[in-house]
Write a protein that binds this DNA or RNA. Structure first.
Lengths: 215, 215
DNA sequence: TGTACATCAGTGAACGCGCGTTCACTGATGTAC
DNA sequence: TGTACATCAGTGAACGCGCGTTCACTGATGTAC
């Protein structure tokens, strides 16, 4: 999964590369364990062992449990934003017939799959509410996420006869908020929040936006 | 604050009443400490002492930390729903000129005041995702909350020339989801989510709903 | 290429600490007569 | 009303346990000549 550039046979890792690999494996394990047990409920020993290392290895890569969590926030949210940006680009390029329905279906599917990701996001949010440094990281990565989604939202807005006086960023934030809120409700009571309800909400929002008179 | 019915002088509490009072005080303290530290981060000793009792008193009223948390969920969310139902009724009776703007302003104010309540709600959700019994409590109290808000939403829908084919419950769930999602964003970055943005989102939603053709 | 030494990523036992829970006890409240 | 006993809400010290963090150590990798 690493290297392989210019068709060389599998090269032995340098010390720095090996360390970076360990760090990544610990971050992966941390994501799993923090999602399952929460910040305070997760133990560094379980994280280290789940990654296949001793606790000492963890402390050789991170200063403390808090630092590990902050680094996880940064790494995880950055990577998620990158993936979203790619998917958004591909979606716009595909130029589907009814983008909104397709989009809502995908979102509903994402919701149902990854409870782990949702729990982790909630942990991030709670940690940030209690910790200014984490709050800053969350604000920055959220802004990056919004930016990554703007092309997609602009595209859908145009399809719905968008109102040119409206900032795509605002629509993006509202749509994202609505989706996140409904996803959370859906996880509590899947029967009460159908995939259609999500589509419905997004559609009403876009119709309303394109109909409303600019103030 | 207790009793005083029929102008009697302050009556001494019976054993049962005194115990119920202690229980309530511990639940109040639990709400504060769980909101501040999270479920795993809060200690029963801190909760008991914050309520002015020993840990033994806590265990005399609740079987375990988990049980305390579940009881808090039930009590806190029931009380919140009651308050919301009252406020919703009053709001409908007042019959304001532009109910949506007033409503959004109030919601924004609520958001800014009580970070404690928001953190507690997030703790409830996370605990529920990891614990089936809590999930059930959350689903039930959420349904009750939706029911309590339906009269309000119906009222606003009528004002916006509502589409009679649309179930008020669906609109309520979508609106609540949107509000909750934006509130969370606002707490991370108040500058990026203004009170106007919340108004905007709710308005677009209602306009879209009343404009959309029923399918 | 080969040798001698330096570096340092990762080990794992040890530490002190704070946690959730228990339980023998206390004394105010309740009950029976 | 007064007395003797029963109840039980709340006390607080004690318990065993698992936690985050440290650190002397190991042996593979890197460096100098």
């Amino acid at each position: 999964m690493v290297g392989d550039t210019e068709g060389q046979p599998r090269r032995r890792l340098t010390r720095a590369e090996a360390k970076a690999r360990t760090r990544d494996q610990i971050l992966d394990a941390a994501a799993r364990v923090f999602a399952e047990k929460g910040y305070a409920g997760a133990s560094v020993e379980e994280i280290a062992e789940s990654a296949g290392f001793s606790t000492g290895a963890l402390y050789s890569n991170f200063d403390s449990k808090q630092e590990l969590f902050l680094q996880l926030m940064l790494a995880w949210r950055s990577r998620a934003t990158e993936r979203q940006a790619e998917q958004a680009t591909r979606f716009v390029d595909d130029d589907n017939e009814d983008p909104l329905v397709l989009l809502a279906q995908r979102l509903a599917r994402v919701t149902d799959r990854s409870t782990e990701a949702a729990a982790l996001q909630a942990e991030f949010w709670l940690y940030a509410v209690r910790n200014p440094e984490a709050m800053q990281i969350l604000a920055q990565t959220t802004a990056a996420r919004i930016d990554a989604l703007i092309p997609l939202v602009t595209h859908v807005m145009q399809r719905y006869g968008g109102n040119p006086g409206i900032a795509p960023e605002e629509v993006t934030r509202i749509a994202l908020g609505m989706f996140a809120g409904l996803a959370r409700q859906r996880r509590i009571d899947p029967g009460a929040v159908s995939a259609d309800l999500i589509t419905q909400g997004l559609r009403w929002l876009l119709i309303g936006m394109s109909t409303a008179s600019p103030d």
